[in-house]
Design a protein around this nucleic acid. Structure first.
Length: 448
RNA sequence: CGGAGCGUAGCGCAGCCUGGUAGCGCACUUGCUUCGGGAGCAAGGGGUCGGAGGUUCGAAUCCUCUCGCUCCGACCA
């Protein structure tokens, strides 16, 4: 993408409504613009990140055997009356009346919708198990939205819903999602820690929150230090096989959010020098809740013995839009965002130091074409702005690698390669610079 | 919803106390000089001062109401 054709409204000053660094940087880097309290437009740069995050989530869900669907944002109140949640959910649910005076709502979650679909479509145990997910906008009318996209009212969520014949099968599904989540967050460069969690209004008795440690996190969390660098399931993990080992490894050490924290157990189970008490950002939350919805909504299949069996369910959420903020909280410096390659809006920034100079333009255009041919997602700064501003912008928007080309370099047949994270800069022949950048990007595209 | 604060140009702010018809920095436009890590000079464009009502000869400024946004607390991907 040529910067002269892109839409990248960057801000030099920090808008005063933004309190935390991820919100400030998302506004400054031209990723988002606020539309109302907790409601944002995603500008091109932000949308690219959101899409990449969503795709990683999607790949790992697919790998773990979940199947993608797309459910509506607007749901019928009648479905929620069936489950009993229409009254129970409270004012966080945005309720709307349509022109025919029917009660509808903007979905805060989709247990009812998916349960109705599965109930009407699946009649035999032979069709189980099923795990269906979608990545869709949700609306929760939070009392107090804050922290930019980290606690918006409208947000993009991946929500998966599993249906199994037996509690034992359901627990295996839970473990599958558990492992998939570890991979999902690791691929975005995040160190997530699954922690025992409260089940809240979703209900159920088995639940984990996936937490990213960060000073600006909303919740207080407690865990064993070794969990911070726990082993992430590798790419060759057999998701059809037994994943209880992974589950055991991660859940045998103490890890709990404030709601579930047991101070006495924390002190008896974890040696003093291994006790971590910190703030955390919740990026995922998984639940096993049995028949909480299938029972009232009549989601049953016929078992092998001909008897009707009520489905065992679980649900599994990932805050896709929140992750954009969480990744920035975890990865930034004084100059701006530092994107991990897999979620970077562009993998490489190509800087033409003197746009309009024939030789420099020719060299840059050539590099641009070759980067594109190599499948690299590149932002080509072909504006005639001054060099300093270009560097500052590239640093602000956090592109992992910068390829810097100016008249002097072109004359010498050289270009500079800059690593955003380390700040290291190296001048080398054009071909070598190109190769270096491409190789670096390809090496980091898949982090787990 | 309780407490605190803020709405003046795209962003950051001053002006308000003590009423006299709107200003600064950045950004933007034009020209010249610059050009290798947020350039300099000059000339410009852009504002129903969140909205409504009131007081006054006159309101960004004073009064009343209202809307929006942010922060702290109770709720949550």
């Amino acid at each position: 993408m040529r910067l002269t054709r892109f839409f990248l409204p960057v801000l030099r000053d920090t808008p005063k409504e933004a309190e935390i660094v991820s919100h400030q940087l998302m506004l400054r880097a031209g990723m988002i613009r606020q539309s109302a309290a907790g409601i944002y437009s995603w500008l091109p740069l932000g949308l690219k990140v959101l899409t990449k995050i969503g795709n990683i989530v999607r790949e790992e869900q697919n790998r773990a055997g979940a199947i993608e669907v797309l459910m509506p944002t607007i749901q019928s109140a009648d479905l929620w009356r069936e489950s009993g949640r229409y009254e129970a959910y409270g004012r966080e649910m945005l309720r709307i009346v349509d022109r025919h005076e029917r009660d509808v709502l903007f979905g805060p979650t989709a247990e009812e919708v998916i349960t109705a679909i599965v109930r009407d479509s699946i009649k035999s145990y032979k069709d189980l198990p099923k795990n269906l997910y979608n990545i869709q906008w949700k609306f929760r009318d939070e009392i107090r939205p804050r922290f930019g996209v980290m606690r918006g009212r409208e947000f993009l969520m991946k929500d998966a819903y599993s249906f199994d014949l037996t509690p034992d099968d359901a627990r295996k599904t839970y473990q599958r999602m558990f492992a998939a989540y570890l991979r999902t967050f690791a691929r975005m460069g995040l160190k997530s820690i699954p922690m025992k969690a409260d089940t809240g209004p979703i209900g159920g008795d088995l639940s984990h929150e996936f937490i990213i440690l960060a000073e600006t996190g909303e919740s207080q969390v407690f865990c064993h230090k070794d969990l911070i660098n726990g082993a992430v399931p590798t790419v060759d993990t057999d998701f059809d096989g037994d994943l209880s080992g992974i589950f055991q490894a991660w859940t045998s050490q103490y890890a709990a959010t404030e709601d579930m924290h047991d101070a006495a157990k924390f002190e008896s189970d974890v040696p003093a020098d291994k006790r971590v008490s910190a703030r955390g950002i919740e990026v995922g939350h998984i639940f096993y809740f049995g028949t909480k919805y299938s029972e009232p909504m009549g989601a049953r299949v016929q078992g092998p013995d001909g008897k009707m069996v009520t489905l065992e369910m679980g649900s599994y959420g990932v805050g896709v839009s929140r992750l954009a903020g969480a990744i920035i909280e975890a990865s930034h410096d004084a100059n701006g965002i530092v994107w991990p390659v897999p979620v970077a809006p562009f993998e490489v920034g190509l800087i033409n130091l003197k746009s309009g100079d024939k030789d420099t333009d020719a060299a840059c255009d050539g590099l641009y074409g070759r980067l594109q041919n190599a499948g690299i997602d590149v932002l080509y700064d072909d504006t005639d702005d001054r060099a300093g501003g270009k560097f500052a912008t590239m640093d602000l928007i956090g592109l992992p690698y910068q390829l810097i080309v100016g008249p002097k370099g072109v004359k010498a047949g050289e270009a500079e390669v800059k690593d955003r994270k380390s700040g290291a800069r190296e001048t080398m022949p054009l071909a070598a610079a190109l190769e270096r950048v491409i190789k670096s990007v390809l090496n980091q595209r898949v982090l787990a």
